[in-house]
């Protein structure tokens, strides 16, 4: 469900399919493990995520909080319109950084 790829010191995680109550805990553990192992600059690529419920948003919030604690940061990329709407009505767009492309996200993290 998660494809990971290092671009220099940035960990790019590409998620696929649905992010809901069925798989949210597994995804959360997988990403927070990477943070524990020292990854502190992340791109979460949602291009192939078709559906996110509140359980999925919880994962994103936990990741954001963990990274904040260790002085890291992350950028979200590729939100489909319905996924974007879910982030929007949650008020998440005010507290997260969202870019259209991976390149833009990497540039943002390099700032």
């Amino acid at each position: 469900m998660i494809e990971s790829d290092w671009v220099e010191d940035v960990l790019v995680l590409a998620l696929k399919g649905r992010l809901d109550s069925v798989n949210a805990s597994a995804v959360e553990v997988s990403i927070t493990d990477q943070i524990k192992q020292g990854a502190n600059r992340l791109v979460l690529d949602f291009t192939e995520i078709s559906y996110v419920s509140s359980a999925g948003l919880r994962v994103v919030l936990v990741v954001a909080k963990r990274l904040k604690e260790v002085g890291g940061k992350f950028v979200l990329v590729g939100l489909a319109p319905s996924v974007h709407e879910v982030f929007s009505i949650s008020g998440f767009l005010q507290i997260l950084t969202v870019c259209d492309t991976r390149e833009a996200a990497l540039a943002k993290l390099a700032e």
């Binding site: 419920s53 509140s54 359980a55 948003l57 919880r58 919030l61 936990v62 954001a64 909080k65 904040k68 879910v86 009505i89 949650s90 008020g91 005010q94 507290i95 997260l96």
Partner: peptide, 22 residues
């Protein structure tokens, strides 16, 4: 649900029902 506070203070939870209402 809390949809306005800063990242540090943002509470986890209650968003599901917020979606339904919205």
């Amino acid at each position: 649900a809390d949809t306005t506070s800063s990242l540090e203070d943002r509470k986890i939870g209650g968003l599901g029902i917020h979606f339904v209402r919205t």
